[in-house]
């Protein structure tokens, strides 16, 4: 518990010192807020939070599509830069879908999305050996609502630090 708080404090200090960091990515995960509003998630260099705030940890897809759009390409360029900064870190790309497809087709589609993200990162010079993929199909929506705005957030490829 104590160690975690140290990490949080360290992370905040680092964030304060890091003035050139880009805008936080939309939909990036925030740490769970504990009592008194104190976040207790890890926020050190090379952490998931660091990736999310520095580069953006996710890209979004159109319905039933696997193409990575311009915005996503930019996010992945920042991710590649971030990954070059931490050469010992490996990541898993999670592929997700909205709920408007059948379960097994969505598992396949999620895998294809994850692979599409991986391919871009590899093309940007990140060794394929550092990147795994996993599909969650429609099993793990980010936003549990049934409307187009939520679906757009749920159709995502999320880069997660192993």
């Amino acid at each position: 518990m104590f160690g975690r708080f140290v990490a949080v404090a360290g992370g905040l200090a680092l964030l304060a010192a890091c003035s050139h960091s880009p805008e936080p990515a939309p939909g990036g995960p925030g740490g769970p807020m504990g009592p008194g509003g104190i976040s207790s998630s890890r926020f050190g260099p090379g952490s998931q939070q660091d990736l999310a705030s520095t580069a953006g940890d996710r890209v979004f897809f159109d319905y039933d599509q696997v193409d990575i759009k311009t915005e996503g390409q930019q996010t992945l360029r920042r991710q590649a830069e971030w990954l070059r900064r931490y050469p010992n870190i490996s990541v898993t790309i999670e592929g997700h879908c909205d709920e408007r497809g059948t379960r097994e087709y969505n598992l396949a589609l999620g895998e294809r999305r994850a692979q599409a993200v991986k391919n871009v990162l590899v093309a940007l010079g990140i060794p394929a050996s550092r990147i795994q993929t996993i599909s969650y199909g429609k099993e793990r929506p980010e936003i549990p609502h049934s409307d187009d705005a939520s679906y757009a957030q749920n159709r995502r490829g999320v880069t997660t630090v192993n």
């Binding site: 097994e104 598992l107 396949a108 895998e111 294809r112 692979q115 599409a116 391919n119 599909s135």
Partner: peptide, 26 residues
């Protein structure tokens, strides 16, 4: 190495047919 999913038995029960992902294809 990849994901395997969508399994079903054959009618005699001696085989299982399923999908497997390779480089994004299933």
């Amino acid at each position: 190495p990849g994901m395997t999913f969508a399994p079903r038995f054959s009618p005699e029960g001696n085989r299982i047919v399923f999908s497997r992902t390779e480089n994004g294809a299933s």
